[in-house]
Amino acid sequence: MNEPLIQLAGVCKAYRFFSLTDVHLRLEAGQVMGLVGPNGAGKTTMIRLLMGMVRQDRGEVRVLGHPIPEGQALAKQDIGFASEEMRLYGQATLGWHMRLVRDMRASWDEGYAAHLLCHFNLHPDQRVRELSHGERVKAMLLLALAPRPRLLLLDEPTTGLDPVARHELLVELMDVVRDDRRAILFSSHHTQDVEQISDVITFLDRGRIVESRDKESFVDRWRRVFLDLPAGTAVPALPGAVSVTTTGRAAVVTTREYSPAVEEMCARARVTVRDVQRLTLEEIFVATVTSQREEQQR
């Protein structure tokens, strides 16, 4: 019961032009984890490793207590998976797919499936190839959600959804974690969704985990500090500064290690702090990736 639903230790997977390096990760029951990172960061590779679709070169992958890829058949009994990579049969209807999954999964909840059909505005008689992109995404999410699995692995679940459908999906996802034995891992470029519903944020860049920590402390430590510099005064070196922009006597410092001590340091340097602002996850995302790329170019 206390075992994490997902556990990765020292996991590596190398491809010709990309490698996932030394990934350590835990997802506990009752949690929602948002996976963010730029294109090609390794988010999809990580989800494929968890599903046993590819085998790691090194390290340990455990999902719902089963070693992966060996125990994937057992693990998948209790996983709901939705991804662009998943293929539905174009000729068949959504209803046909629903019956298929229902026959394979004893936990299929017919009433919940009907509720999702209605809220996602889908019809069982629709043929898959007649569905729009967004409808196909919703169909896959319905098939993943309706068996009420303990673990949901969703690769870009909100991409291509209209605002109403996205709202409905967030409602359903937050409903899942009313049950503290269940958990969700989802990747998304929609940082507002991630910031809103995630308990843990895992930040991936170029195959490495940059940070994986609880959302509140992740977002809380970042600040943009607006300074007024007296003539001839340089911008003080502040802890965790990721970027410094100076225009005349005004300076803006973005820091990832903000604390009240920062303002004391400015006061000692005779620099006026004009304003301190929080950052959204989107801004943190851009600041992190930009500063890392600049560092690499040096």
Partner: peptide, 8 residues
């Protein structure tokens, strides 16, 4: 669940 804001 009601506010659609993370548990944490």
């Amino acid at each position: 669940a009601e506010t659609r804001v993370s548990v944490i």
